[in-house]
Amino acid sequence: MVLRPPVEPMLAQARDTVPAPGRLPGELRYQPKFDGYRAIVFTPWPAPGPLLVQSRRGSLMQSRFPEFVAAATHLPDGLVLDGELVVWADGHISFEALQQRAVLGGRAAARLAQEMPAHFIAFDLLQIDGKELLHVSYGERRAQLERLFTDRELSAPWTLCPETTDPSTAKEWLASWTQVPGVEGLVIRGSGQRYLTGARALYKVRRRDTTEAAVGAITGTMRQPQTLVLGRLDETGALRPVGRSTPLRPDAARDVAERLTPAGPGHPWEGVRFTASWRSRTPLDAALVEPELVAEIMVDTALERGSWRHPVRFVRLRQDMAVTDVPPFGAGAASASS
């Protein structure tokens, strides 16, 4: 069977800690988790044709990234690569720049390819020379992927994802590499795994740090809050939204409910329209509260324009802190905790 788009990528399930050996078939392999778009690259087979770049959801987006099309001559025909598409801007991997690139084509895409070049970080090989490899173990697929990069002397925009089998090295990557914008954590695979399209058969561990934010709104009711909408003060003293929590545990919901005060006139978020998730258009039914409670939260590294793209985790209320003690808007995971 020759693979053609769309192909559902193999996905990962979230874990809080690096798993112990034996949780996946074969030897554990650790790779950095980059903050980009999942993509699958297809070179033509058997007849000549264009390079195709498929998004995670199956749409084709090669017209947005002409540098990949131009570099297709370095790849053999009949190849299918799974990886992460990232954009380099202002000296680091930028998710915001990637979003901008993903919606512009034509002359704008050609210009941005020069100003904000994209890179494809390959971490799996699904087909080579027209031969599908989904049934082959990951260890063998990785060996063939490494040979491809060596034999073809591939360079930017094609990048081979780093990998280690050493748990100590992986934990060091999780602690240190995630300090660099664009690296979120780890993806863990088993060397004996087949490629299971659409299945959450891998593990991912995001770096999480503890910090603080003010509670400006809730979902649910005042007696039974479900999630928190959080904010921080900017340099002008205005409360800016920075994220939303995952659902509260029952004990945490009771603790928060006892201390909430419904918002009075003049709340800084009056008239603000909240959405259910990052980039969603679905409205969020949120009730404003007086922004006087401070929540300690656990966050990952996916911060964009001062806000966290993924839901944050509520840890506890910080009754020893005032809203003015919270790190300012844009400070990321900086913490005021003592």
Rank of each mutant, 00 (worst) to 15 (best):
E8S: 12
Q13L: 11
A14K: 11
R29L: 14
V41I: 02
F42G: 00
T43E: 06
P48G: 01
L52N: 00
L60F: 08
P66Y: 14
A70S: 12
H74K: 06
D77Q: 11
F95K: 05
Q100K: 10
A102I: 03
V103R: 09
G105R: 14
A108G: 08
R111S: 12
R111F: 14
E115S: 14
A118Q: 03
H119C: 07
A122H: 09
D129W: 02
G130N: 06
H135F: 04
S137L: 10
L145A: 06
E146W: 02
P167E: 11
T169G: 06
L174R: 00
G182D: 04
V187H: 09
Y195T: 07
L196H: 13
R200D: 01
L202A: 01
T210L: 13
G216Q: 09
L228Y: 10
G231A: 15
L239W: 08
V242K: 10
P250C: 08
D251M: 02
A263I: 03
P265D: 04
G271I: 11
R273Q: 14
R279W: 00
L284Q: 06
E292L: 10
V294K: 08
V294Q: 07
M298H: 08
E304C: 06
G306V: 12
P311V: 00
R313W: 07
V315G: 10
M321G: 07
T324D: 08
